[in-house]
Design a protein around this nucleic acid. Sequence first.
DNA 1: TCTGGGGTCCTAGGACCC
DNA 2: TCTGGGGTCCTAGGACCC
Length: 390
Amino acid sequence: MAYFIHADLDAFYASVEQLDHPECRGLPVIVGGLPEDRRSVVSTASYEARKFGVHSAMPVAQAYKLCPQGIYLRGNMKRYRKKSAEVMAIFSDFTPDVRQISVDEAFLDITGTEKLFGPPALVGAKLKNAIREKTGLTVSLGFASNRYVAKIASGMSKPDGIFVVAPGTEEKFMSALPVTKIWGAGNKTQEQFRKYGFKTCEDIHRLPMENLKSIFGTAFGLFLYRAVRGEAAEAFEDERGTHSMSAERTFPYDLYDEFTIETALFEICETLMFRLLNQSWQSKTVSIKIRYDDFSTESARETFPRPVGTIDELFDRLSALFHRKYKSSRGVRLIGAGLLNLETENTPHQGDLFDTVNEKERNLEKHIMEINKKFPNAALRRGRSWMADK
DNA sequence: TCTGGGGTCCTAGGACCC
DNA sequence: TCTGGGGTCCTAGGACCC
């Protein structure tokens, strides 16, 4: 009988800050941006801050109105990633099958570990103790016979709790929940639920699969049909296939100057190219994203016969796409770019034999990357973005 | 109140081929 | 002249998650 834990660190970024800064403990801490930072949003609010109505994804400006006495921080991802790795290492002491799904969440397959660690309540207590003692953090745990239900269960246990769904009771557990608890049904879908008068999962449970498919589409209809029955959602059970990487920048003020936007695009190219080389990946498909002042967003992508080799080549491809889309009369609040369908390096491509021109430049970029890794403060960069700093 | 950044997956429609 | 059906690849946009 399969059995899983979903583990979710409580108010993770805010908790790390309170750990590192004891004077912040017991106070409302909001990580995401300072009140004076334009266009920043809340990443994590401590439980003390949530009492004021502050929550994730809320504009910091709004949070400040609700909670002017809060402690506002921009956050330190490096530090959070380090703490996250400590926690994941502890998970690995309990089972070799740990599937990390974000910086503060993981699924643990504990099938067959009962002899070693005991029944769920006992494993849970041991896990929570180990994490508190070794890292100073608290975690919420959900136990169930599949990952999807375990995820919902951990949500019920927050903060610092344990919620166990006994095998065989998954369907009963899910049916009783309000539709707002369905993981994978966000704002737009909740709006649909209201329109159809669906309040609890039981209301959805009553409908035949065919009705759900015709209302919500084939894939999502099937997903809902299974979710309200407490059945495993395949997307969360399978190893995921495709990979992409992207970087974007929201400007503090809307930009109307093409050169400034392109300079930001070039810096994004540098970021992406270094990350690509660093992870030994390659990509033939590039994409750009433009968000205008009215928040409308357009994107464009193109697949080329050969993978991107250098920063300049990436910039040329992206810049062409940008000009195909860009409406110069409109203010731009965000520019972004991505590399899609990543493959491991050395995947052969037609034309590689003739590709000696870029090799020099590619090696130079790899070299610059090595130096930047060794001396993070050296700020070794290439022409265009260096000029833009002046 | 005025909306970050980094991801994944799904859909519909078009191009192209047999 | 008034046009099928299936498969594959690609693209733009949208929903969702943390």
